[in-house]
Design a protein around this nucleic acid. Structure first.
Lengths: 225, 225
DNA sequence: GGCGTCCTGACACGAACCTGACGGCATATA
DNA sequence: TATATGCCGTCAGGTTCGTGTCAGGACGCC
């Protein structure tokens, strides 16, 4: 994870950033609100550790501005023990959590790990074409609930076909999308890969248009052999 | 939201359930672990408030059992001020948050609101993948009850893979999550670390997809060599 | 039927991957 | 400071398996 630490106290900042780095995360340490904003402009963070008492402005309004801007990044507030109202305000301003200073470093670790776990990620978009469920990002393909494994070439081919479902793509076009150049020679590579794909996806998943090319059949319903 | 309160102290239980109800949520109040289990069988909850000191068993083991069963419901722990280790253990056992007794009721409200907000869109924290139990916070890894120790690099790699179980991650992606930058030139570091990880986790814990990358195999069941 | 296009099993090559070994480096211990 | 320990990146040799090629057959179209 990439973590932004916003904290003006040098000693605490050092300790925390070291601890976070030890946990294997990349840390950027901002000492002021304007530094923090600069960091946010420069990089994307998965977690922000935010001190509320900063020299050039309130961490609270920084947080509120962040949330108003639609940012969903988890924020953990670092706050003093006696400022209960501040903690409440922080949570209401959109913080996910807080740590009371002085805090145990192992507690910090646990909380960061909790956020990391929670952060685990939004699922990838899944496209369905006919009976096929495809998660292009994860390279997961399912048919009737059963997962099908494809090779690299087969994925590229399927991706090319899925980019324009229903429309016919010529062998030349498909070749180009596989190899990024037109093969000067003719070969039947595409035919072979189409054949291999059909064997996995089901015979009718890909339709051939004689003399023109191939297209994904979004209506297919047959079964794989 | 439907909230399950597990708390044996009558006075506190009354106060809390009243407060939660005032916030517009439905509350069920269980005074023992077995009561709580009965409630869970009977209804689905969006939030659990859990006291750790209960007459008929530890709230911690209740929580762990809950998580082991795959439950993703947010859990806020209610704990005494002086029990820091308990709080940490609680977070590691899969709690999302804790409140230190005695707590301000308005703070409780703020925390519930925070959970409600967070609950809106976030997916499951990952604790077990296949035969592996992973405690990211404590950096403890278990397989078949036996703990396995990993080196720093191995942890990062495993974390990256666990963040998206089942999806294929390219070597480049894995490299980035290890080093926070793309290595300009190629080495087989990832391959080597994958090999070392497999030796510890079991051969089939990580699947390789030739030409694409690697993925955690959540179905793995073989034994480590 | 005759022709061209497409399908598909078989096969061999080589890229991608695995893994044991080694040495550099950092940290711990005395 | 000297020694020991363990992690990590590199390398080399071995292995696996994806991929292109080819050939014979099937199919559609005139």
């Amino acid at each position: 994870m990439r973590v932004l630490l916003v904290e003006d106290d040098a000693a605490l900042g050092n300790a925390v950033s070291e601890q976070v780095a030890d946990q294997g995360h990349a840390v950027d340490w901002a000492q002021t609100v304007s530094d923090a904003n600069a960091c946010l402009d420069a990089a994307a963070y998965e977690l922000i550790l935010l001190d509320l008492m900063l020299p050039d402005g309130s961490g609270l309004s920084f947080l509120r501005a962040l949330r108003r801007g639609g940012a969903t990044v988890p924020v953990i507030i670092l706050t003093a023990r006696d400022r209960i109202s501040e903690r409440i305000e922080g949570l209401n301003a959109g913080a996910d959590d807080y740590l009371v200073k002085p805090f145990d470093l192992s507690e910090l670790s646990a909380r960061i790990a909790a956020v990391a776990r929670r952060y685990a990620g939004n699922p990838n978009p899944i496209v369905t074409v006919g009976p096929l469920e495809v998660d292009l990002a994860a390279h997961v393909l399912r048919r009737d609930g059963k997962t099908i494994t494809l090779t690299a070439r087969e994925w590229h081919l399927l991706e090319a076909l899925m980019r324009r479902p229903g429309t016919i793509l010529s062998k030349t076009q498909l070749e180009e999308s596989l190899y990024n150049f037109d093969s000067e020679f003719e070969s039947n590579t595409i035919e072979v890969h189409i054949s291999r794909l059909r064997k996995k996806l089901g015979k009718d998943a890909i339709e051939t248009a004689r003399g023109l090319g191939y297209r994904l059949n979004s209506m297919a319903s047959g079964t794989a052999s």
